[in-house]
Amino acid sequence: MKKILLLGGTAGLLALCGCYTPTVNSVENTPTVGQRQFITDRRVVADADLAKSVALVKLNTATTPDDLLQVQVELHNGTWSLARFAYRFEWFDAQGMQVDNVLSATIASQIEGGEDKFISGIAPHPGCKDFRVKFIKTK
C-alpha cells in the first residue's frame, strides 16, 4: 500500500513538474480603433489535430503604400498545450498563375495553449492578387 502511494505521489509530482505548460490570458482595448477588412476564405483540413491547435480564426487584408497586398491571419490554439508549426505563403497573379518568389520561406513558429496569434505575409509583387497559406505540424 505504501509503495502504491509513493509511486502515485512521485508520478503526480513528475506530472506537475514536467507536463505543465502555461496557457495565455490576454486583455485588449474595446472598442478597437483599427477596423480590419475581413475576407471570406476556403479551408482544406487534412490534419484535424493541427486544425485544433492552430485553428484559423479570421483573415484580413490591406494594401501597403507600395500597392502590395498584405495578408494577416488570426490563429487560435484551442488546446491547453504549446503547438509548434510551420507556415508558408504562396502568391498568385490575376490569371491565377503562381508567382515565383525567392522568399517563399517556410517559417517555423509556435503558439501557446489558448493563445491568439497573428501571422502576416506581403505579396512579392503588385501583380499578386490571390494567396494561399499552408500549415504543417512540426516537432
Binding site: 501597403t64 503604400p65 507600395d66 522568399l103 520561406a105 502576416s120 505575409g121 506581403i122
Partner: peptide
C-alpha cells in the same frame, strides 16, 4: 531565408 523574408516584408511595408 526566414531573415531575408522578414526583412523584405518589413522594408516593403514601410514604404
Amino acid at each position: 531565408l526566414q531573415a531575408a523574408e522578414d526583412s523584405t516584408k518589413s522594408l516593403l511595408a514601410s514604404g
